[in-house]
Design a protein around this nucleic acid. Structure first.
Length: 402
RNA sequence: GGGGAGGUGGCUGAGUGGACAAAAGCAGCAGACUGUAAAUCUGCCGGCGAAAGCCUACGUAGGUUCGAAUCCUGCCCUCCCCA
C-alpha cells in the first residue's frame, strides 16, 4: 500500500502526544518506511494485572489505531511475564504478587477488549512469556550489566521510595530491563506508552543498540486522571472507566466527573477539534458533558447504545423516574421485611448492616414511597419497583416462599 | 553477623493492661442542595441481632492475667545504622 507523506503522518501521530523522543528519528523512520514500502512495527505493552482495561489504556489504543490508519503494523504485547514481576513505574510501593492463573485469565479478556479499538487485521498479539520464560540466567545477567545502578536510582519513583525508606525489591530493578529486552525481541521501530514509561521505553533504545538494532522511537501519551480528577486512572484506585463496561455504566461514570475534569477528557479522548470544544465551552456544561459521555459510549460500543444510555440517564437522574430497561428480579419472600428484600435482591448491597444503613438514611423507595424503617414491611403486591440508593433501580416480582 | 525502630480497620495514623469495634483524616455509602456532577452541609461507615447482646478483628503462633491492640516468648515481614 502507498503510505502518506511522512510529514503528514508525523502530524497525525503528534496530535495528543506529550512527547516523541527523538522526533527527528521518527520522521526518518517514516521516510524509510515509505521508501521501502514497509510498515513500521509499533509496540505497546500492557501487563495483565487486572481483568479490565480502562480509558487510560484507551488513550494509547487510540494512538495505536492512528498508526494502523496510516498503514503501520501494531504489535500488541501482553506482558504476561512482566505482570509477574510487577512494574514499579510510578508506584510508591511494591506491587502485590499476582498468580499465574489470574494472569492467564486477564490476558484473555485483554484480547477481546483491545479489538474494541484496534483493527484486527493489522494487529499482532504477542506474549512476552514466549521469550522471557526461557531466558537463561546467563542472558539475564548479560542484561543486568547493561544498566548502572545509579541510573536506575535516578528514576523519580525509585529515589523517592529510597529516600522515604520504603522497600524496593531487587526484582523491581529487573522490570525495566526485561521490558527493554522485549523491544529487542520484537524488533520494534516505535514504542507507545504513558509518560510514566519514559525510563523503560528509552532503555529499550539502549538495548536495541547493544543488540545491533536501530533503536525504537518513544511516543509518550499523557496520563489520564481518574474519575476523582486527581490521581491517575487505575483499577486499584477504583477511579476508572473500563473499556468493557456497559453503556449505562460508562455514560454514568463520565457524567459523574467534575466540570473541570471534563475538559481534560475532551482534550485526551474526544475526536472533536479545538474549535468544536471551544464552542461547547460557551454552552451549558451539562450539555457538553452529555455529549462527551455519548461520544465515549459510541466509541466503545455503538451509537445506538449511546442513544439508549443517554435516555436511560435522563429518566434516571434528570427526571428521577424509572428507566425502561430496569433489571427484573424475582424475590422469594423469606420474610416481609424490607431489609431482607433489599439484601436479597440488590447487587450493590452485600450485608444486612449496609442494607439497614441505606434504608434508615432514606435511600429506599418502593413504588414511589420512601421506607426508612428497615423492619417495616413491603406492600402486599406481587410486583414492586425499588430504588436503592441513587443508582440501583429494580423491578421485583414477589414469590411467596413455599 | 551486630545494634536500633516498627507491623493497628480499604488507606494514612492515634492508642502502651479494663471506659476499644479501636481517636482523627482520607476514601466509600446515604440524604440535602444542584445543572448530571463537583464543592458544601448532615448522617452512616466489621458481621449477626428488634434489642440486650454475641461473634470476628490490631503481622502470626503460643503464654501471663479475672481481663491484652497494649505485657512475655517463638516465628514471619519492613525500615534505619554498623560490618
Amino acid at each position: 500500500m502507498a503510505f502518506a507523506d511522512p510529514k503528514e503522518q508525523l502530524e497525525v501521530i503528534k496530535r495528543g502526544t506529550e512527547a516523541i523522543i527523538p522526533e527527528e528519528e521518527l520522521l526518518l523512520k517514516l521516510e524509510a518506511s515509505k521508501e521501502n514500502d514497509r510498515p513500521l512495527k509499533v509496540k505497546a505493552g500492557f501487563d495483565p494485572t487486572s481483568p479490565d482495561l480502562h480509558l487510560g489504556h484507551g488513550i494509547i489504543l487510540k494512538k495505536l489505531r492512528d498508526f494502523q490508519a496510516l498503514g503501520h503494523e501494531v504489535l500488541f504485547l501482553i506482558g504476561d511475564f512482566t505482570a509477574y514481576i510487577g512494574d514499579p513505574s510510578g508506584r510508591s510501593e511494591t506491587r502485590p504478587a499476582i498468580s499465574r492463573e489470574e494472569i492467564i485469565k486477564n490476558s484473555r479478556t485483554y484480547e477481546r477488549q483491545v479489538f474494541k479499538v484496534l483493527d484486527k487485521k493489522k494487529t499482532q498479539i504477542l506474549s512476552n512469556s514466549r521469550w522471557l520464560s526461557n531466558l537463561g540466567s546467563e542472558e539475564l545477567l548479560g542484561l543486568t550489566s547493561l544498566v548502572n545502578v545509579s541510573r536506575i536510582l535516578d528514576r523519580d519513583d525509585f529515589s523517592k521510595r529510597y529516600k522515604e525508606g520504603i522497600s524496593i525489591s531487587l526484582r523491581e530493578f529487573i522490570y525495566p530491563l526485561v521490558q527493554a529486552y522485549d523491544s529487542v525481541q520484537m524488533h520494534c521501530d516505535v514504542e507507545l506508552g504513558g509518560t510514566d514509561q519514559t525510563f523503560n521505553i528509552l532503555l529499550g533504545r539502549d538495548f536495541q543498540r547493544h543488540y545491533g538494532q536501530s533503536p525504537q522511537v518513544g511516543v509518550f501519551l499523557p496520563i489520564l486522571e481518574g474519575t476523582d480528577g486527581v490521581k491517575k486512572m487505575s483499577k486499584s484506585l477504583g477511579n476508572y472507566i473500563g473499556l468493557d463496561e456497559s453503556p449505562q455504566d460508562i455514560y454514568g461514570k463520565v457524567m459523574s466527573i467534575s466540570d473541570e475534569l471534563m475538559w481534560r477528557y475532551y482534550l485526551l479522548l474526544s475526536a472533536r477539534d479545538e474549535k468544536e470544544i471551544r464552542n461547547l465551552k460557551t454552552g451549558h456544561p451539562m450539555d457538553a458533558k452529555k455529549a462527551l459521555a455519548r461520544e465515549i459510549v459510541s466509541w466503545l460500543h455503538d451509537s445506538q447504545s449511546a442513544l439508549e444510555a443517554t435516555r436511560d440517564f435522563e429518566t434516571k437522574f434528570s427526571r428521577r423516574s424509572f428507566p425502561e430497561d430496569t433489571k427484573e428480579k424475582i424475590y422469594t419472600a423469606r420474610s416481609r421485611k424490607v431489609v431482607d428484600l433489599v439484601l436479597d435482591v440488590s447487587d450493590s448491597v452485600n450485608t444486612k448492616g449496609q442494607a439497614k444503613r441505606i434504608i434508615s438514611q432514606g435511600g429506599l423507595v418502593i413504588n414511589g414511597e420512601k421506607y426508612t424503617d428497615p423492619n417495616s414491611e413491603f406492600p402486599e403486591s406481587t410486583a414492586l419497583e425499588l430504588k436503592i440508593g441513587k443508582k440501583e433501580f429494580l423491578r421485583v416480582a414477589i414469590k411467596e416462599a413455599s
